[in-house]
Design a protein around this nucleic acid. Sequence first.
DNA 1: ATGGTAGCGCTGCTA
Length: 263
Amino acid sequence: MRLVTWNVNSLRARVGRIENWIRVHEPDVLCIQETKCSDQIWPFGVFQELGYESAHYGFGQWNGVAIISKVGLDSVEYGFPEPKDEITKEARLIRALCGGIDVWCVYVPNGRIVGSEYYEAKLVWLEELKCLLETRVDPKSHVLICGDFNIAPLDTDVFDIQQFEGLTHVTQRERSKLQELLDLGLVDVALAKAEDSPAFTWWDYRGGSFHKNFGMRIDLMLVSKSLLEKSENIYVDRDARKKGTDTATPPSDHAPLVLEVSL
DNA sequence: ATGGTAGCGCTGCTA
């Protein structure tokens, strides 16, 4: 089974690219973030024609998450069951059972500036996610928590840690929150399977960052031990980040992260 | 060249 997470940076701008990618790579489950569209315009038919069910949670303009599956899409849950804050009301979480796997697709807030209200809200959001997963996830079953975490777990997960001094994505408080998720009994599968440092998943649009590989690893897949045992291969499809000649539309600034499991 | 790239939606914000 092929499981994928991909921040697409707008569904509407890139639906053609996404379709083409699905045709070529045939994912079984595709989790996407930053659809930047509302449920009203979600193109169920596009994915249906490719043989997929889909579920989307979004209000438009910002955020928005979806799960696209051809191995079942059951018990779908949209967002936090009891959002306590403004930040947990945003469209950043969707969950479904797909082919025997408990799939959670997340888009963690960016945080903007360390110490800002947005940074604090990011930490609150991660705390709420941990509390939800604590009660809802059975770590003995097949579990996948994947998406854009907006956290680089290790210093080697950014192209030059010295340039990230004082910036979000690399602070101890963010990394501690990620560790609390791992402490539920989950494993960062790209890190676990990598021979040295796992590949980057995001590159800034500006300044030729992709060409220079000035990137970060912020898209993650956290899996339960049982799913780790079934994991055969994990890789980043960097080709999807290239401009390409078939379309004028630029690629997303994120590349898809692909996990192959044998269930 | 004193920014840079992209999406959203229409002015400036967010990433």
